[in-house]
Simulated assay, not measured.
Amino acid sequence: MTDTAAPGTSRSGADASDAASSRALAAVDETGQVRRRRRLSPGRRLPASRLVGPALVLALWAVASAAGQLDPAAIPAPWTVLETGVRLWTDGTLTTDIVTSLQRAGSGFAIGLTAGVALALVSGLSRTGEALIDGTVQLNRAIPTLGLIPLFILWLGIGETFKIAIIAIVVYIPIYLNTHAALAGIDSRFVELAEVQGLSRFRFVRQIVVPGALPGFFVGLRLGVTGSWLGLVVLEQINATSGLGYMMFQAQNYGQSDVILVGLAVYGIFGLVSDSAVRLIERRVLSWRRTLSS
């Protein structure tokens, strides 16, 4: 039995497919008795399941703080961090820093996304492009991106430009690598079929290349989104006058661990929300796939 579904399948069709799958689990043995096969799939997706882990960590943190097992000066209680966050938000400090960080991360991410996709397409669809691009990107990947900061400061100055450039590099590398790998993994029989059908270059890219590369692209996109936040927290501590990283750096100088935890919490929330958004888009765009995760 082939377990596939076309894009746009209705809910009733999905329910019917699930019912058929359940019936397929039943088998008739040699004596004619019905026995059930062991289900090997993970089962249905639990709602908000990714929040269980963070909620458990938060609960353990709260219990340990209430029991006096944590030093308040080093690790303040969750309610203390929440009060600090509300205070920073009320006086406008946190709002300004969040807006600045979002602008930096968004600009770098947009540039990195465009560069990663464009380079992957050129390299994946042309041997000449692969010879010119792939080796250079692999060399760039082998060099620690944050190690390029001193050189970029000399080239671009110590303002916003070098920060955005570093974030773009952090983003484009995983997008390129995963998209290029997905393009290289497209079954050659699809290419032969497209040649037999006489597809144009544009139709070949639209009907074969894009669907085949999308799964790898979304993996790279998730890594790129996370990488933009990881790079930002370091870059905002270098000659910055605003941003979450700058706020945390200043808090370190004054021993304000609660403010540092507020910044880390905001970074974590942004990372979780952006990753969840990419996952949601991925499920919608690739709804035609029937995979283990779905």
Rank of each mutant, 00 (worst) to 15 (best):
T2H: 12
A5C: 11
G13L: 14
D15E: 07
L25I: 15
A26W: 13
A26R: 15
Q33R: 12
V34C: 05
R35C: 07
R36S: 03
R37Y: 10
R38L: 06
P42N: 10
L46N: 09
P54W: 15
V57G: 10
L60W: 09
W61S: 02
S65W: 08
A66E: 07
P72A: 06
V81Y: 08
E83F: 13
G85F: 14
D91E: 06
D97H: 12
I98K: 03
V99T: 15
G106R: 04
L113E: 05
T114N: 00
G116I: 09
G116S: 09
V117R: 04
L121P: 09
S123E: 02
R127T: 03
T128S: 08
I133Q: 01
D134F: 14
Q138G: 07
Q138L: 10
Q138V: 08
A142R: 10
W155Q: 03
T161S: 09
I173M: 08
P174D: 01
P174M: 07
P174A: 06
L177P: 05
N178C: 01
N178I: 05
T179H: 03
A181L: 05
L183D: 02
A184W: 12
I186Y: 01
I186P: 07
F190S: 14
A194Q: 03
A194W: 11
E195W: 12
R206F: 09
Q207E: 10
A213N: 08
F218C: 05
V219C: 04
L221S: 04
V225W: 11
T226F: 14
T226I: 14
L232I: 11
V233E: 06
V234Q: 02
E236K: 10
I238T: 13
N239G: 00
G243R: 12
L244N: 00
L244D: 03
Y246I: 02
M248P: 03
M248Y: 02
Q250N: 10
A251S: 01
A251G: 06
N253Y: 13
G255C: 06
G255Y: 05
D258P: 04
V259W: 07
V262I: 11
V262S: 07
L264F: 11
L264D: 00
A265F: 12
A265E: 03
G268E: 02
V273R: 10
S276H: 14
E282C: 09
R283A: 05
S287T: 10
W288A: 02
R290I: 12
S294P: 08
